[in-house]
Design a protein around this nucleic acid. Structure first.
Lengths: 222, 222
DNA sequence: ACAATAATTTAGTCTTACCTAAATTTTATT
DNA sequence: AATAAAATTTAGGTAAGACTAAATTATTGT
């Protein structure tokens, strides 16, 4: 006895937002993969989102899709919910940073604006979630990162970890065990061009990390 | 741009549970009215719930519907979620008892068992929600009310208010302003058989209440 | 520039959960 | 017990959002 579960518009917009954050439009295939549905279904829904009033996406055949102003607002609303919830679950219910994602993923769609305001206020309007991701402000703008622009790990770098953009829970637990969490001081040492590994030192621990990992760790240089 | 919203199985079961709490099966019409859909649609869904594996409801044409053991468990699960959430929202986010229902109504369907355990533990496993309703236990049994059985308000009664089963937010605010909340001591005075009103005294306030209200207030006599 | 390949869209199908209207069954009244 | 009224079910329709397969358009490598 299972009920049809269809992907919410919020989820479409959220994933388009994430796929387009470097400016380029999101492709049908990329969206389909993320949403775990077939590309043909994505095309269908995108055409509706583009034809809706107000239009939520900008769409040209074969050229991919971007968000309109309205679509972006709706996306930032959900992202704000998600990141506030992650912070709140960690702070008030003792979740660890690898456990929060799934729970927030479900809650983000159903909480009221009132609930959002209450948890934001209760936490003193935090700037970042437990992974270090910026939380969109109440007026739905992504805060400009006024600090030194973040960069993924680079050789011969010393600084503070700002953000760990990993989705995989197991990886998050692994990184935590290495001391790699937002706020930690990190020293990046040698780079092996042979196997694309970086050696990093956090506290007393030295680890060798592959590109698949280092590309997800963002540091503010000091 | 609105998305089809269909009633969850959990909601069907929850409402059947509430309609059958005095033993009698729930009628198609009563369910339809609660769920705000047409009776014909209810019939259709009920037939599926009865044919599912395992069957969630017992159903005989024209005789109404009751929950099977599995259906009852599923219903108690949602009701536990709902009531724990109401208590949680009041205790940790400063919601008032008239604000919690709507929020809990949406959250109850998406929280994990882990979330449920965490808030229950954080509150010390409360027995009742902010309206005084009993919270089903973790093993999904409705706790037997071992105190004197509750009764709706009756003339010439003195006792403590246990439970206020009102759904209407405005009414709840009104009752609160009269001091009528769980835990308050109440004295029921005269009954007017002419207009079916009861006079009650709570603290220093004396109020005259109609049957539509008094039937929702439950007292443990002292 | 031209195939070959990959990405995308179109067309048409399926399922689900609602709807309306008509038919049927139950309940209430005399 | 017969009939009127109310409740319920059946039958058939609709819209949404997924799917598959086939057609089309873009991209890539030589």
């Amino acid at each position: 006895m299972e009920q049809t579960l269809t992907i919410s518009i919020q989820d479409y917009l959220k994933h388009i937002y994430e796929l387009t954050d470097r400016g380029a439009p999101a492709s049908t295939n990329a969206l389909a993969e993320r949403l775990k549905i077939k590309p043909a279904s994505v095309t269908g829904m995108i055409q509706k989102l583009a034809a809706s009033n107000p239009p939520l996406v900008e769409y040209q055949k074969h050229q991919g899709v971007t968000l309109t102003k309205d679509g972006k607002k709706a996306a930032l609303e959900v992202i704000r919910h998600h990141r506030l919830l992650e912070a709140w679950l960690v702070q008030t219910l003792g979740y660890s940073w690898d456990e929060v994602h799934e729970e927030a993923e479900r809650l983000e769609h159903v909480i009221s604006e009132d609930f959002e305001r209450r948890i934001a206020a209760a936490m003193g309007h935090p700037l970042r979630d437990p992974h270090g991701e910026l939380i969109p402000t109440a007026d739905l703008k992504m805060p400009l990162d006024d600090s030194t622009p973040l960069s993924a790990l680079r050789p011969n770098q010393t600084g503070t970890i700002q953000c760990v953009k990993a989705a995989d829970d197991e990886l998050l637990r692994h990184l935590e065990s290495l001391g790699i969490t937002p706020g930690a001081s990190i020293e990046v040492k040698e780079y092996s061009s042979y196997d694309h590994n970086l050696t990093v030192k956090v506290g007393k621990k030295t680890s060798v990390l592959g590109l698949n990992i280092t590309s997800k760790i963002f540091v503010e240089e000091s």
